[in-house]
Simulated scan of single mutants.
Amino acid sequence: MPSNRPIRTGIIGFGLSGRVFHGPFLATNPDFRVDVIATGNPERAADAARLHPDAVVVGSPDELLARLDDLDLVVLASPPHTHLEQGLAALDGGAAVVIDKPFVPTVVEARKLIAKSEEVGQPLAVFHNRRWDADFLTVRRLIDEGALGRVHRFESTFERWGKPVADKWQDNIPSGRGGGITYDLGSHLVDQALQLFGPAEVEHAELTIVREGGTSEDDATISLLHTSGVRSHLTMSRVAAQSGPRFRVLGTESGFRSYGLDTQEPVLKEGMLPDAPAYGTTPEADWGLLGIDGAGSLTPVPMERGDYPAFYAGVAASILDGAPAPVDPREALEVVRILERAHALAHASSR
Results as ranks from 00 to 15, higher is better:
Ile143Met: 06
Ile143Gly: 00
Ile143Asn: 01
Asp144Trp: 04
Asp144Thr: 12
Glu145Thr: 06
Leu148Met: 00
Gly149Asn: 01
His152Gln: 10
His152Gly: 10
Arg153Gln: 11
Phe154Cys: 03
Phe154Met: 04
Ser156Asp: 08
Ser156Trp: 00
Thr157Phe: 01
Arg160Val: 12
Trp161Met: 13
Gly162Val: 09
Pro164Lys: 13
Pro164Ala: 10
Ala166Ile: 11
Asp167Glu: 14
Asp167Lys: 15
Lys168Asp: 14
Asp171Glu: 10
Asn172Pro: 08
Ile173Glu: 01
Ile173Asn: 02
Ile173Val: 08
Pro174Tyr: 07
Pro174Phe: 02
Ser175Leu: 04
Ser175Ile: 05
Arg177Lys: 14
Arg177Pro: 06
Arg177Cys: 12
Gly178Asp: 00
Gly178Arg: 01
Gly179Leu: 01
Gly180Ile: 04
Gly180Lys: 03
Thr182Trp: 11
Tyr183Lys: 04
Tyr183Arg: 04
Asp184Gly: 05
Leu185Gln: 09
Gly186Leu: 04
Ser187Lys: 00
Ser187Gln: 01
Ser187Tyr: 02
Leu189Glu: 11
Val190Ile: 12
Asp191Gly: 11
Gln192Asn: 13
Ala193Leu: 02
Leu194Ser: 04
Leu194Pro: 01
Phe197Asp: 00
Gly198Gln: 06
Pro199Gly: 11
Ala200Lys: 01
Glu201Trp: 12
Glu203Trp: 11
Glu203Met: 13
Glu203Tyr: 11
Ala205Met: 09
Ala205Thr: 08
Thr208Lys: 09
Ile209Asn: 12
Val210Thr: 09
Val210Leu: 05
Arg211Trp: 05
Arg211Ala: 00
Arg211Val: 02
Glu212Val: 06
Gly213Ser: 02
Gly214Ala: 08
Gly214Cys: 07
Gly214Lys: 07
Thr215Val: 15
Thr215Pro: 11
Thr215Arg: 15
Ser216Leu: 02
Glu217Ala: 14
Glu217Phe: 03
Leu224Cys: 05
Leu224Thr: 06
Leu225Phe: 10
His226Val: 05
Ser228Pro: 03
Ser228His: 02
